[in-house]
Structures are given as C-alpha cells and as structure tokens.
Design a protein around this nucleic acid. Structure first.
Lengths: 233, 233
DNA sequence: CGAGCCCTTGATGCATTTCAACGAATGTGG
DNA sequence: CCACATTCGTTGAAATGCATCAAGGGCTCG
C-alpha cells in the first residue's frame, strides 16, 4: 500500500509538480520519506472515478501516468469538463471539506494518494514546501483565468484552436504530432459547445490546412503559426 | 504615507479578507504593526488604474472602499472583465513577476498597498497568516471555477441572472435592493456577451417580474427564488 | 460480415451579435 | 431656464453562429 519514492516515474512526477530543484528545498527529503511511508500508489482503470463531487476531500492526488478529467454534472443531465490532468499536475487542491467536482480516469493509470493531514503537517514543519505548493496553486489560478478569458471572448472554433495548441504543449511537449486522450464529447464539454460544433471545428481547421487528422484521436499540427493566429484573432 | 491599522474601516477590511478571528492568529498583531509602518493607504479616483497589465507585480492591494474592476484587453480592441472587487476582497495574488490584467477603480475609493516582500517576510515568520492567505487564494480559485462553469454551460440571460444574484450577495449582503456600480458594457464584458444582449437580459428579467429597475443602476430583486430557478435552469 | 460506437456532415431553427435608430439622463453655454 | 450636445441604455431588424435534429460514414470487435 505504500509507495516507492525512489521510482523514477514518481520522482519525475513530484519534480514537475513542485519544480525543478525540488530536492534542494528544506524538508524535501523528509517529505519524500513520509510519502513513502504513508502515501499510496493507486492504479485506476479507464473510466473509473478517483473521487466524486461532494465526496469528503480528504486526499490530494498526483498523477503518475494516465490522463484524468475533472467534471461536474448539471441539474439537467449535461456535463461540464473543467480540466484534463497529466503527469506533473495535481488534483484536490480544494480547502473545502468536499470536492466540488468529480475526477475520472480517461485511461488506465496510476496516482499517488496523499492524506491532506499529512500534507498539512509537512507544510507546518517546512514552510519552503508549503510555499512551493502555493505557487503551484497560483499557476493553476492563472491557467483558469486564461481559460475564462477564452470562454468569454472567443468563438467556438477559436476555442478549439486554443485547446489543440494547449494539448500540443502539454501532451507532446510542443511536438506537432500527438494523441488526444479524450473524445469529441469530452472536448465539447470542456469548451462549452456541442459535440457537432467541436467536430465541425476539427474539419474546418483541417480544411484550412492548419491541422491534419490521421484518425479520430491522432492529430498533427501542420501550421502552428497560422493556428496561433487564428486562435488569437 | 503610512496607514492607521486602528481605523475601523481598515480593520474590517482585513478581517473580511483573513477571516473572522484574524486577530487571534499567531502573528496577527505583528502583521498589523508592520502594515501600519510600511503599508500605504492610497486614494484612487474613478476610472483610474491601480496597476496595468504587464506592470511588475510588486504590490498587493486590499480595497477599503470603492469598487475595483479587473480587466484585460484583447488584440482586437475588445475587453474582458475578470472580476469586480469590493471591500473584503484582495488583488494582486499573482506569484508571477507581472500582473496579467489591469485593475481599474469604478468609483473613488481607497486601497491599502502592501509590498509583496513585506507579505512574504510575514509569511515566513508566521505560517498561520500564510495559511489563511492561501485559504483565501483557494476560495478565489473555487469562485473562478464556478464562473467558468457558468460561462461554459449557461445562456446569456441565465448568466445575467447569476450575476445579479452574486451582486446582491456581495453588494447588498443579501438585500434585494442594491446599486450596481458598473455599466451595462462592463457587465457584458464580464459575462462574455454584447452590451445589447445584456440590456435585453435586464428587460427580459423585468418583464418576467423577477427584478425591477428603478434607474439604470438601481435594481431590486423581486422574486429571488424564481431568479435562482431561472439561473440554474 | 454485421453490430455498435464514435465521428462527420447536412438541414433547420433558435440564440446572440451586429447594425441602426430612438429614448432617457446629465451637463454646458447662451 | 431652455436649447443643445453627449453619454448611456433600450429596442427593432437583419445577419450570423451555434445547437439541435437527423442521416450517413468509418472504425473496431465480435
């Protein structure tokens, strides 16, 4: 049930959450040690929930592999997708006692599950770690602000262009060819549009020669500059 | 140039930022003392900027009186409004070295201007204060997530209904009659719609008997329950 | 080969934007 | 105190973007 913090996959995940020189921070080693004692490495199957909206938010999760989707369902059966999380992200930041959205695995994967009280006690002993963590929160905040900006200002097809550029950075680390781990419906629910509009967006960008579509999930960005230009209006 | 932390207005503003029993926190008094020595109370005139996008983000501001609007302008001359801030809010949370939006006063008012380094040094000495501050950040994050949800899922008139309910809570503290400090254009830019759509939204809600409009800026919520119901679909 | 799933495409209708005109409130100078 | 200009909000009509409804196409897996 415990984890092995010497594993490369876990180390890199932690490093990309907490920053490059994480190991040099005061308390970093104690933190890792406590994690290896008390944290759990959990495997999650495709389409299974890590937690659901209104569950008590007692844990924080760090994705090691796989893709996670944060979603909330509306009174009317429809669904909003808040985010797609990859290695190097972090979920369960909430200071509330309940989660305000659900977290679902889009693919088989593993996460490190950390008790919040453990995190809290580390923070109290090692302010440097706490500071890093809160810098992370701040980056999330800025990311969401950008998303809010895009949702408020851009047309459906522009939002899709933004999305593809973002995915290219986050999945392919900037490579033009990458594999989308989510369905058209997921993308539509993330960008606040219908499935059909999302699909038309793909077709339109393809016709404009900005992207090519090998198959439904495999995309290549052909003209990144044009895509950027289109996205930013 | 320094501030008087014994002033009731300043105390209540700090209390509503940092929570009810702020004074009981370890380090609260030192914090207040340092503020009275090093922070500044600044008067801002209507329509003047407190800071602009891309300015170095060296300060944090706490509104004491007046209303502040956070905005960002697009490449195409249009504008996005991120938030309206009142007493008890806080601006300049960013951990980046530059602000990612501008802050403009919608009315004459005063803010307390605090050097970030001062805040940082307080945080290092008094973790309890830091913790409170980061809880605050977390509330902001959740607020923005809700906003994102609304932007992605709701129709224009529903977004307006949400907005009015939010303003009723924040301005009138729940009273049904309140004064909107922003123009229709500001509201439209906040909710991602055209000025005309915002205006039609007001008319429509009025015709449905949910609100009444004394004059452009003075609004009464007549049927809060119906408004809630309409907003939530 | 056929079933089922997801994606695409077309046609239609509704929501929202855009363009344009009008109305209400405010301020200014005669 | 009254024309007049100015600013801001409302309303109408036309155009557009997007959702919805409906059908067809291409995978994948049995």
């Amino acid at each position: 049930m415990t984890i092995d913090t010497s594993k490369v996959s876990i180390k890199t995940s932690l490093a990309s959450c907490f920053g490059r020189n994480f190991q040099e921070l005061e308390g970093a080693n104690s933190f890792l040690e406590e994690l290896s004692k008390h944290a759990q490495e959990i495997h999650i199957n495709e389409n299974c929930y890590i937690f659901k909206e209104k569950d008590p938010s007692d844990f924080i999760y760090i994705p090691i592999s796989g893709v996670i989707m944060l979603e909330r369902s509306t009174s009317k059966g429809s669904r909003h997708v808040f985010a797609f999380l990859f290695t190097g992200n972090l979920l369960g930041l909430s200071e509330f006692s309940f989660y305000t959205f659900s977290a679902r695995a889009l693919s088989n994967g593993t996460v490190v599950k950390i008790n919040k009280q453990l995190i809290q006690s580390i923070f109290e002993r090692y302010p440097a770690i706490a500071k890093r963590f809160h810098e992370f929160t701040n980056h999330v905040l800025n990311y969401i602000l950008d998303q809010l900006f895009i949702m408020g200002q851009k047309s459906a097809h522009q939002r899709l262009a933004h999305f593809l550029l973002d995915m290219s950075n986050r999945i392919g680390h900037g490579t033009s060819k990458f594999y989308l781990p989510m369905s058209r419906q997921d993308i539509a629910d993330y960008l606040g549009m219908s499935l059909e509009t999302a699909s038309r967006g793909f077709s339109s960008l393809k016709k404009k020669g900005m992207i090519s579509i090998q198959n439904n999930y495999r995309i290549t960005i052909l003209d990144e500059e044009a895509l950027h230009h289109f996205a930013d209006d």
